[in-house]
């Protein structure tokens, strides 16, 4: 039960984080379309780091 609450919290936190990353990346691409490739790479890496964090927490809690 507590596991599931924890998982929910992790998903909320991860979702906020991913939203921030994605949103900011979109904004920067809109501002500088010529740098889209670099921004995308950086976005994916940060997203992956966040994902690792979230999964780590999920696995530790499960």
């Amino acid at each position: 039960m507590y596991n599931l609450i924890g998982a929910g919290l992790i998903v909320i936190g991860g979702g906020i984080g991913l939203g921030q990353i994605g949103g900011k990346a979109m904004e920067s691409i809109a501002r500088q379309p010529e740098a889209a490739g670099k921004i995308q790479t950086a976005m994916i890496i940060i997203g992956a780091l966040l994902e690792g964090l979230g999964f780590g927490a999920l696995i530790l809690g499960a």
């Binding site: 999964f55 780590g56 696995i59």
Partner: peptide, 8 residues
């Protein structure tokens, strides 16, 4: 994080 990410 690498191993957990791929696995999960």
């Amino acid at each position: 994080a690498l191993l957990i990410r791929l696995f999960a």
